[in-house]
Design a protein around this nucleic acid. Sequence first.
DNA 1: GCCAACGTTGGC
DNA 2: GCCAACGTTGGC
Length: 141
Amino acid sequence: MAKRRAHWLVKSEPDAFSWDQQVARGVEPWTGVRNHMAKNHLKAMRVGDLAFFYHSNIGKEVVGVVEVVREAYPDPTAEEGDWVCVDMRAVGPMPKPVTLAEIKATAALAELALVRMSRLSVMPVSGAHWTRICRMGGWTG
DNA sequence: GCCAACGTTGGC
DNA sequence: GCCAACGTTGGC
């Protein structure tokens, strides 16, 4: 049976860590998650899964796609608690970044966690939502 | 700068 | 174990 990839969305404030930095570094640990729901999503990620890279606060748009290259391991930036991080690799930029405003204006995306749970920083994206956002952003990868 | 959502903390 | 107070995130 073929392995089925899951899809995700991860948020970063570009002030702290931007898409350009992700691209410049290639592979980078995704650290700093301090929310249990988000942590559980990180733990569920498998090598080869793809994720949208979303800029929160500034931009408020999906700017690129990253791939999980190392599954959950202890977050070295956590001083206490069993927080985890994964390693992400930049796959490519969205030809046309998909803004939060566009997502909110799309009825088919009303159930997206980005809309429903605005504070969650790591979330799953259904196959249908993934395809839809890729189409909106001109992503053909 | 304000506010809503929501997680965490601490008193009881 | 409940709940009010408080802090943080993130959109506007």
